[in-house]
Amino acid sequence: MRFLSFHAGDGTTHLGVETDGGIVDLTAAGGADGLPVSATALAAGGPDALDAVRALLETGPPATSVDGLRLAPAVPDPEKIVCVGANYRKHSAEAGLPVPENPIYFAKYRNSLAGHGQAVAIPAATTQVDYEVELVAVIGRPAREVSPSEALDHVFGYATGNDLSARELQTRTSQWMYGKILDGFAPLGPYLVTADEVPDPQQLELRTWVNGAIRQDANTSDMVFDVATLVSDLSQAMTLQPGDLIYTGTPEGVILGTAERIWLRPGDLVECEVGGLGRLSTTLVEG
């Protein structure tokens, strides 16, 4: 199943599910009979929440076109946003980094989340903005000290992400976070796709286009640490909660790895796509 979050007319954020006839507003349905009203509640509810959604859809509820909706991040309110650096072998090579022996983690925060189609401002603090298409894992069942073999059982679903980066801020110290936490620099969506539709997260195509020109074209099979390893490893240090996001790293083809280094600028349209999870569009504007 494919879910999305969108901004309603009253200023609240609603959860919708995609059907052949359009988007059904689950939040407007009132949460009756265990129906989830947010992406986090959906992830926490797991199979029971999905059963409630299926029961509602059997009644033939009204649907609306996605084209008329202003989308929010696919998961608007995660407790944690954990990102993984240098997690593709070819990307490590183009960035001049050694292949890591252990996962490299850094954090983003809710201020960085942006929805599909949302304009993201380039602030005056940076002139070196780069794109990074990423598979994002969304936690369902809480995960604490789980093994790699059971880790994917704790993943509710997946989404397309773009780990936008301000490179001169990222590299000014050994800690990358400052170049990663800018407002809007973690677009996510358009959809949250349930894990049953992604039988193997290590066999997904990743692509990025800038103004229609292909820039990244790779596969999640090039990950150094696969999704199961990342979930397991993180769960040794902290409890992963429903709705938590793991941006699992980007493949080769980023601007940082080119000789010209022509950075993103206002007016550029960046489109990212992972497998069948949907194409995520972001327009850069002047801050």
Rank of each mutant, 00 (worst) to 15 (best):
T208D: 09
V17S: 12
P251H: 06
A114F: 06
G85R: 05
M238C: 09
A137V: 11
A114H: 12
L206G: 03
V99H: 12
S174L: 13
I255N: 08
P251T: 07
G140R: 03
G21A: 15
A72I: 01
I139L: 10
A159M: 04
M223I: 05
V224A: 11
A143E: 01
T194W: 03
F3Q: 14
T250P: 13
A228V: 02
P78Y: 08
W209K: 01
G21H: 10
L264A: 03
R207Q: 11
V24I: 02
P123W: 06
S221N: 03
G278W: 00
V17H: 15
R54D: 15
E132L: 05
A124Y: 13
A41M: 09
I262Y: 09
V129W: 14
V133P: 14
S92N: 09
A125D: 15
V17D: 11
A63P: 04
A28T: 08
G22F: 09
D153Q: 10
A74Q: 03
L204Y: 01
W176R: 06
D77W: 10
T250M: 07
L206Q: 05
S281P: 00
G275Y: 00
S174E: 06
Q216V: 13
E273G: 00
P61F: 04
T250E: 11
G157I: 01
M223F: 09
V285F: 00
Q118V: 12
H116K: 07
G30H: 06
P251E: 06
E132W: 11
C83I: 09
A218Y: 06
T194N: 02
L69N: 04
I246S: 04
E271L: 06
D10K: 15
I246L: 11
D130N: 12
P199E: 05
A124T: 13
P242I: 10
V210C: 06
N111Q: 11
D244R: 01
E150M: 04
R89Y: 09
S221V: 06
F6W: 15
V84M: 02
E79K: 07
I255Y: 05
Q203S: 08
R54I: 12
L152A: 07
L256S: 01
V24E: 00
V99T: 13
D77G: 08
L269F: 11
K108D: 10
P100T: 10
P78I: 13
A29H: 07
L277F: 00
R54Y: 14
S112C: 12
R172I: 00
I81T: 14
G253Y: 05
L50M: 12
M238V: 13
K90A: 15
A237R: 13
L42H: 13
K90T: 15
S221I: 04
E134D: 10
P36Y: 12
A29P: 08
L204F: 02
D25S: 05
W209V: 05
P266V: 04
L256A: 03
E18D: 13
T220V: 07
L234F: 08
V227K: 02
V138T: 06
R110A: 14
Q175T: 08
N87D: 06
L69P: 01
Y247A: 09
M238Y: 09
G16A: 08
R70V: 09
M1R: 03
A114E: 10
G243M: 07
V84F: 03
K80M: 13
A32M: 11
L230Y: 04
N211L: 07
L280A: 00
S174H: 07
I81P: 14
I81F: 14
Q203C: 07
T208C: 07
G9C: 14
T282L: 00
K108Y: 14
